[in-house]
Design a protein around this nucleic acid. Structure first.
Lengths: 190, 190
DNA sequence: ACCTGAACACCGTTCAAGT
DNA sequence: ACCTGAACACCGTTCAAGT
């Protein structure tokens, strides 16, 4: 039976969920699919491209978000965080794919966030940067949160400092900081 | 002649500068130092710890920064960015070490930034998060900037989009956004 | 105390050759 | 067009044994 891109991505996703990024290797994935490692390179140019496809598979849509510009930013960020937290090492995977420019979904999110920033009154030359700043925050915060979560789940019973409590409330606070910053720049032209 | 931690870190730094993170391997480093790979494990528990030491070696001090809280934040962030840009893959290395909790220098920066946030009037429970948000921004922005810089330098003559011009001005703009956000939270208690 | 030698258990990627 | 088999050139880490 023929191997399709979507089968590879599905198998990679379940490997990720079960064992994490360190065990998401081309060889292990090939073994899981009962093909030779080389077979994957017929469908994907390299590992980065495959990881980008996995990232896009686990990310949600970002188009059906409505409301004022700051409501949209908040909703988009919570949606991104939720998706990342739903998969083992999700934040790490998406961060890497975003940095490598291999995630179409993240590029699209940037566009949608940029539009919200423009609506907030940020000059169009700076809107993309405002959008990127928001993305850096969500990825950084969530990667941090997730590594602590997974560390705890792995049985490390070290008592965490106060600041790891109420992660959602803390996430919202940091987000509000960015939204306020964008609002303060409403009168910035570019 | 005995191998010392500082020799290992120095050799690792020059390997990094010359060939980048992908070639900064334990085996290659051992070869450069004319020792066996196992020798490195007498001085460092693992690769992450060694990379953390390299990160701390290339980072500057963060204590002699004066001025108002927003001047201090700006100065600290510019100093961090400058250090990252001074070494091949500097942003990537420090990001990884920070995420892995292996950089004492970054932990210290967090403290200093947190103090500035407290002085800005952010509740002490949220100051650390404000500090982290600033760090996520600097690391994210600079990693992005540096990967484009290094790509160009490697001879890719693709015309970059408008938004890659004036990186320092763009960096300052994004930073201002965060500073404004922190200022807006001056009356937040925690 | 500090290091070697050699092994263990892997990697990503390429490519001639097969079907 | 799609895949196998086998190779190429590596990895990080461990550990008995040496000095």
């Amino acid at each position: 039976m023929q191997l399709h891109k979507r089968d590879v991505v599905a198998a990679a996703t379940s490997l990720l969920d079960a064992y994490g990024m360190a065990d998401l290797t081309m060889r292990r994935l090939a073994r899981e699919l009962a093909v030779s490692p080389g077979a994957l390179y017929w469908h994907f140019a390299n590992k980065q491209q495959l990881l980008g496809a996995v990232a896009d598979h686990l990310l949600p849509g970002f188009d059906d978000v409505t409301g004022s510009w700051h409501e949209r930013i908040a909703a988009l960020c919570h949606r991104l965080r939720d998706a990342l937290l739903s998969h083992t090492d999700g934040a790490e995977l998406v961060s890497a794919s975003f940095a490598a420019g291999q995630s179409a979904a993240m590029d699209h999110l940037l566009t949608v966030l940029g539009a919200a920033a423009v609506e907030a009154g940020v000059g169009s030359g700076n809107a993309e940067l405002a959008a990127r700043t928001v993305v850096y925050y969500v990825l950084g915060f969530t990667a941090d949160e997730q590594s602590r979560l997974q560390w705890d789940a792995a049985g490390a019973d070290v008592t965490q400092p106060v600041w790891t409590e109420n992660p959602t409330a803390r996430f919202t606070f940091g987000l509000q900081l960015l939204v306020d910053g964008i609002a303060a720049h409403s009168r910035t032209r570019s």
